[in-house]
Write a protein that binds this DNA or RNA. Structure first.
Length: 262
DNA sequence: ATGACGATTCAAAATCGA
């Protein structure tokens, strides 16, 4: 069972890249973020042609949007709203005895000060609400997968320069401490870091503004697949499909995979 | 320090991303 998460940055614009992802990564489940597509315009027919017969989507016009694509049937599809906002950022479905969550945590704007920047305040509240909800709703023995664009780079090696980014949104202590609290709720296993030592850099996002993204390599690890301890013994592999950042008209995020034994 | 890019939207310039 291979689970991929990808911030696609427009599902309609990048449907051909989703075909390439399907071919090159051969996932069983794909969690998408930033689909930027209302549900009535979601490209179901194109996805069916790619073999994605089971699709759950939760989208709106222009912004946000999440989806789950699956080879096998999805059950109990539902969505979650946060911070009393209409944003489409969280969809949940059961597949093969697991509950899969596709999650898009807010970016948070530029200024990392909740008193000055309402978007950053909203991001912190979003993280706090998630933490309270997971702690109240589930236990570590529930078989859960939490995958998505968390918009937080938790470890010093999850950014290209830890010191330079401490005051940059995605890597501030206000965000990383909150993400750590979320991780503690169910003793979530960060699947990429189950394989890559904490002193090694891993990135999943590179800005569109870099002239030479690969050469400069000023990346951040914003995309994550977490599993509960119930699923952790089945974890057998990981991948960041970095080459996807070089596909024609790419997303600025690379797909991230976790592999679980069947 | 600024801007660099890219997607979307009542279709031109603004907003958002991170």
């Amino acid at each position: 069972m291979k689970i991929v998460t990808w911030n696609v940055n427009s599902i309609r614009l990048r449907i051909d890249l989703l075909e390439r992802l399907t071919d090159e990564m051969a996932p069983d489940v794909v969690c998408l973020q930033e689909t930027k597509c209302p549900d009535d315009l979601f490209p179901h027919e194109a996805l069916t042609r790619l073999g994605w017969e089971h699709v759950a989507c939760h989208g709106q016009k222009g912004y946000n949007g999440v989806a789950i694509l699956s080879r096998r049937p999805l059950r109990e599809v539902r969505t979650q709203a946060w911070c009393e906002r209409p944003d489409c950022r969280h969809i949940i479905a059961e597949v093969d005895g697991m509950e899969v969550h596709s999650l898009y945590i807010p970016a948070g704007g530029d200024e990392p000060d909740p008193a000055k920047n309402p978007k950053f305040a909203n991001k912190l509240r979003f993280l706090d609400e998630l933490t309270e909800w997971f702690a109240a709703t589930y236990g570590p023995r529930d078989p859960l997968v939490l995958a998505g664009d968390f918009n937080v780079a938790p470890l010093p090696t999850d950014v290209w320069d830890h010191k330079k980014l401490l005051k940059v949104v995605t890597h501030t202590p206000m965000e990383t401490t909150r993400l750590a609290l979320l991780q503690q709720t169910l003793d979530w296993v960060d699947t990429t870091r189950a394989f890559v030592p904490a002193d090694e850099h891993v990135f999943t996002w590179w800005s569109y503004r870099a002239a030479d993204w690969r050469g400069a390599n000023k990346g951040r690890r914003l995309d994550h697949v977490w599993v509960t301890p119930a699923l952790a013994p089945r974890l057998t592999g990981w991948e960041v499909h970095v080459d996807a950042r070089d596909w024609p008209q790419p997303s600025d995020h690379a797909p991230v995979a976790a592999v679980l034994a069947d």
